[in-house]
């Protein structure tokens, strides 16, 4: 069986490295999109390629809200689980994310072990 692939849309390199490391150790394959525009492009190119989208809110080119709107309106990726990484104004972000159809939230800064637990809850085992 092949590894489950996770698309990580995150522009902060230090967070991206930590997530890639932790989820990689857990056995998932993590692909990085360094801004929202790249994330949308990857989802367009491989609509069935990912088991989960981990999505930061504040990113250049297209922010997390724009990416989430794309996911929930584009039929090919509509069912993709989305884990939103929220930061400032967490409650407001959570409300926005829930309205737009995010599956789960995690407040930054987060414990990477907690992130791995949520990922497993959302997509199951890595293979």
């Amino acid at each position: 069986m092949t590894q489950k692939r996770i698309l990580l849309a995150e522009d902060e390199a230090h967070i991206a490295k930590l997530v890639e490391f932790k989820l990689g150790k857990e056995g998932y394959a993590v692909e990085l999109a360094s801004n929202g525009g790249v994330a949308i492009e990857k989802l367009r190119t491989e609509p069935q390629g990912f088991a989960l989208l981990i999505l930061d809110v504040m990113m250049p080119v297209a922010d997390g809200w724009e990416v989430l709107r794309f996911v929930r309106t584009e039929s090919a990726v509509k069912g993709l689980p989305v884990l939103m990484l929220t930061a400032k104004g967490h409650q407001k972000d959570m409300a926005n994310a829930a309205e737009l159809g995010a599956t789960q939230f995690l407040k930054k800064p987060f414990d990477p072990t907690e992130l791995a637990r949520l990922v497993r809850k959302l997509v199951g085992d890595p293979k």
Partner: peptide
Amino acid sequence: AHKLAGTAASYGFPTLT
């Protein structure tokens, strides 16, 4: 400040966050 707020505690620096 914003970037530190979102990252530092994940690296074990809660005060910086």
